[in-house]
């Protein structure tokens, strides 16, 4: 009986191995598994004693830069890598070197969205969708906070609103029906260009924005993300194609992120978004 059980286990293990065995091509791919860009939490100091804590220590910046806790990679430049907590940093969004080139007939619409994004009331149609606690959506959500790579599948995880994206990386075409779906993050498929993972996404809602200065898009938008690893440095490039609104494709400034080297780092759950401030700010015209 024991032998029969052992034999059964071996057969089961063999069957599982054959199912789980990665295709040869997948085995040779770079390993993207990890937490990137300062996401993930570990080794927090218990904040229960009467000591002074400085959340802004310069050393933190240095540690992030060095990738000690998974921040920006060396060599990152421009504002694109600074994912900030407040729209006071609007100037850095506006300061991006690369800007979308809208067709002239949409300039006024974009301007209205930018000017009245905070106003609410009769201008509510121009509100930044974030005010309504709507998901950021691709590509505004930025690079993933964590990547899980399993064979010919990638899973991009984001702290923001506990978002996930499931991306087959076997170079398949978009599903002929689902590519006309309408969601903030769209339908993604991936393919390898050498060591670079190219993710193409379509099937978007037109409710989300691309960035802070009122950058709207149509649901014909196609987003192409390119991810490349150099050691623990992740290079993230985005190109937005929108045949309805754009005169030409818009390429984001390159972002470089460091992989978190702390093995204890863990992505945390986000809590609900409950913003009730639209139209109620002291100065609704202050846009930053």
């Amino acid at each position: 009986m024991e032998m029969r059980a052992s034999l059964g286990s071996m057969l089961l293990a063999g069957a599982l191995c054959s199912v789980m065995a990665l295709p040869a091509a997948a085995q040779n791919r770079p390993n993207f598994n990890g937490i990137y860009g300062g996401a993930g939490v570990a080794d927090l100091k218990a904040a229960t004693c009467g000591e002074k804590v400085d959340g802004f220590a310069q050393s933190n910046n240095e540690r992030y830069k060095a990738g000690a806790v998974g921040g920006l990679a060396e060599g990152n430049k421009g504002a694109a890598g600074w994912i900030t907590f407040e729209q006071d940093c609007g100037p850095q969004h506006r300061g991006r070197v690369s800007k979308p080139m809208y067709k002239p007939q949409y300039w006024e619409t974009v301007r209205m969205h930018d000017n009245y994004a905070n106003a609410g009331g009769k201008y509510e149609e121009y509100a930044d969708p974030q005010w309504k606690n709507y998901p950021l959506g691709v590509p505004r959500i930025g690079p993933p906070n964590q990547i899980v790579q399993v064979g010919d599948n990638m899973f991009f995880l984001y702290e923001n609103q506990n978002t996930f994206r499931s991306i087959p990386t076997d170079c398949r075409e978009h599903d002929p029906v689902l590519k006309y779906d309408q969601s903030p993050n769209g339908l993604s498929v991936g393919c390898w260009d050498g060591d670079t993972l190219v993710v193409t996404t379509m099937g978007f809602t037109d409710v989300t924005w691309l960035d802070w200065p009122g950058y709207i898009h149509s649901n014909e938008m196609v987003v192409v993300e390119k991810l490349k690893l150099d050691g623990d440095a992740l290079t993230y490039d985005v190109t937005v194609k929108d045949p309805v609104y754009f005169m030409q494709d818009w390429q984001f400034d390159t972002t470089k992120l460091a992989r978190n080297k702390n093995p204890k780092a863990q992505l945390m759950q986000d809590v609900p978004y409950i913003d009730r401030s639209l139209g109620k700010l002291s100065d609704p015209n202050y846009r930053g």
Binding site: G37, G38, A39, G55, F56, N60, N61, Y64, G71, L72, W82, I83, T84, F85, E86, Q87, D88, C89, G90, N118, D128, Q130, W131, L136, I141, G142, N145, Y158, E159, N160, D270, D275, S277, L278, L281, S282, D283, P284, N285, Y286, R287, G288
Partner: peptide, 27 residues
């Protein structure tokens, strides 16, 4: 200095804490 602080905090907080309004629009 304020902007520097905001940038530093941005590093600390990551993308998960993007907010909706400028602090200076209210405070």
């Amino acid at each position: 200095a304020l902007m520097g602080s905001a940038l530093a905090l941005g590093l600390l907080t990551g993308s998960a804490t993007q907010a909706h309004h400028a602090v200076q629009a209210q405070f």
